[in-house]
């Protein structure tokens, strides 16, 4: 199994405050890697260093290397726009654009000029919606507002939007934390389906969710990576006492 992302000695600072310490982690291709840990442990911050989403926050500083396919994304001269196209992101709160369902998915295709013509664009939108398991539910109302969808559908629309630009890695920041159990289950099924073609990194507060969908799990605490192991090992016999205490609910 090849490693898609390779992070070494990553430090992260908000101004003077250090949020991540010496993180080194290999993320294998076409697998699901879950990040777990108590609130404020840095798992979301770390996730956002992987597509340089943190760049939009003033006063941050990153040290160390994040290699994607062997190329350091923090090298000067990195095309952040191209990076974000390659590394898609789905957020905690579904954030559809104030546009139609179709235009939401088409947006990324349009700005990146991926499509050849109108027919190609329509096909790509349909494919993305289909891959996000949303097509059947929206095919008759593509040109209505995205805000008319349910919370779970909106989140799958955001996934479709991310898929439409043909990323290789998908980062998910607690994608189901605001959804009901049925909608959550659909997202989880989708994650498992998508890993056949994409490398997925998912941050979750829900440990059962991490257990259900991920191949490997990384446990963070106080800005440090405590343990990373195959998920079944992590949840049956973790190496670290700290991990054991966290996943058995002794703190956090």
């Amino acid at each position: 199994m090849q490693n898609k992302l390779s992070i070494s000695n990553l430090d992260f600072f908000y101004g003077k405050a250090q949020a991540l310490y010496e993180i080194s982690l290999e993320i294998p291709e076409r697998q699901v890697m879950a990040f777990i840990g108590p609130s404020g442990c840095g798992k979301s911050t770390f996730l956002r260093t992987l597509n340089r989403m943190n760049d939009t926050i003033p006063g941050i500083r990153v040290e160390g290397d994040v290699l994607i396919d062997g190329k350091n994304i923090y090298e000067s001269g990195t095309d952040v726009v191209a990076l974000r196209r390659k590394v898609g992101m789905v957020f905690q709160k579904s954030n559809p654009f104030p546009k139609t369902i179709f235009e939401n998915v088409a947006y990324g295709i349009r700005i990146n000029r991926i499509h050849k013509d109108k027919t190609d664009l329509e096909m790509r939108v349909e494919k993305a919606l289909y891959d996000a398991a949303l097509w059947d539910e929206v095919k008759d109302r593509l040109h209505t507002s995205a805000f008319g969808l349910s919370g779970g559908q909106q989140q799958r629309l955001c996934i479709a939007r991310a898929l439409a630009v043909q990323p290789e890695v998908i980062l998910m920041d607690e994608p189901a934390s605001a959804l009901d159990p049925i909608a959550t289950q659909k997202i989880e099924e989708l994650v498992v389906e998508l890993k056949k073609r994409y490398t997925i990194v998912i941050v979750t507060h829900n440990m059962q969710q991490a257990a259900r969908v991920s191949d490997k799990t990384a446990f963070f605490m106080l800005g440090k990576l405590v343990e990373v192991n195959p998920t079944q090992k992590m949840f049956t016999s973790p190496d670290e006492k700290l991990t054991e205490d966290y996943i058995t609910g002794r703190f956090g």
Binding site: N51, M53, T56, V81, A82, L83, R84, R85, G88, M89, F91, K93, N95, P96, F97, P98, K99, Y107, G108, I111, N112, C158, R161, A162, V165
Partner: peptide, 24 residues
């Protein structure tokens, strides 16, 4: 979050403002 959604798709800042923020 809406801006982030567009930035994460690889949209440059000015397009985010024009395409997403202004209509919203």
């Amino acid at each position: 979050s809406m801006r982030e959604g567009a930035l994460a798709l690889g949209a440059p800042q000015w397009r985010v403002t024009l395409d997403i923020v202004m209509p919203a």
